[in-house]
Design a protein around this nucleic acid. Structure first.
Lengths: 157, 157
DNA sequence: GTAATCAGGACTTCCCAGGTCCGATTACAG
DNA sequence: CTGTAATCGGACCTGGGAAGTCCTGATTAC
């Protein structure tokens, strides 16, 4: 269903939570703040730290800290950090069951078209756009119909 | 990994195949033509027929027929036919484990932003764009680097 | 020195995509 | 008009991967 993993959803919540309140926050603290199991949050934070989206401080009174502001973090980066690079299809299977014949797979390579379109669409949206408490500079309509908001956002450029 | 199902991949191939050759084609015939297991192709065709992308003719000498031309079928429709409506997150879980507190889920509803962005990106690409044998009107660069092609396609409008 | 925190891996559980099957329906042939 | 064959339609089963949990080790402030 073109679904992205639940961990990515959590990652967004965690990052936004991290942008509020104290500069450095511990993983149990964040977990308690957003009402998610602690091990899961820890897993997400590890992945985010591995991708450089957050920096970690070990030891007592350690924790995680946001490196960039929310407005400098496109959704693409979060997805890439958790789910790996965006690639909607795993068409490259290697042994080529039927892709060797030129007429057999008429879309060979064409999925990149879709991949990049999605990548760009997600690259335009930052976490600041997704944070309800942040005033969104690109969009200025009412907050009741997110669909129209998105439309405005995209068509504005 | 923001992956769309393999069935959707098949659906695109099937639809393009259906646009070539005979007007009505049987599911075993298509399966043989693209080198995929017949039951799988049949399943894809059923879903496509259910969504009205193809029309089915039962009985002897029956088969499937393309309703609209490829250029009138955006990728969105294929995804919606196979995977259901595009919704990257299943945030709406009903009982609200932690989404009831107002500050608990700071992105509540904001995923629609992303959903619609993806939806629009996919809505701009039609199956004709993905068919290698069809001359693509929007893109006119060389066919060696699909990534750049996609970039051209999107940024051209 | 001690306690608190992150880092990394291995493991189990669960769900759904992927694949397969059999029954219902229709058209053609005699 | 009836029989037959070819096809669609829906239900079933299975394997892979994500989601979540736990443990041990490394690092740093107090």
């Amino acid at each position: 269903m073109l679904r992205l993993s639940k961990l990515t959803d959590y990652a967004v919540v965690v990052l936004i939570r991290l942008s509020h309140g104290e500069a450095v926050q511990t993983s149990p603290g964040i977990a308690a703040g957003i009402g998610l199991p602690e091990p899961t949050v820890a897993k997400v934070l590890k992945a985010l730290a591995g991708s450089g989206l957050v920096s970690s401080q070990r030891g007592a009174r350690g924790g995680y800290r946001l490196v960039r502001p929310l407005s400098a973090i496109p959704v693409t980066d979060v997805v890439a950090a958790i789910d790996g690079p965006i690639a909607l299809t795993a068409c490259v299977e290697g042994s080529g069951t039927g892709c060797e014949a030129e007429c057999t797979c008429p879309v060979r390579g064409r999925w990149d078209l879709v991949n990049d379109a999605v990548r760009q669409a997600l690259g335009r949206i930052t976490l600041a756009d997704m944070d309800r408490s942040t005033p969104r500079p690109h969009v200025r309509a009412a907050a009741q119909q997110p669909q129209n908001l998105a439309f405005t956002l995209i068509s504005a450029e």
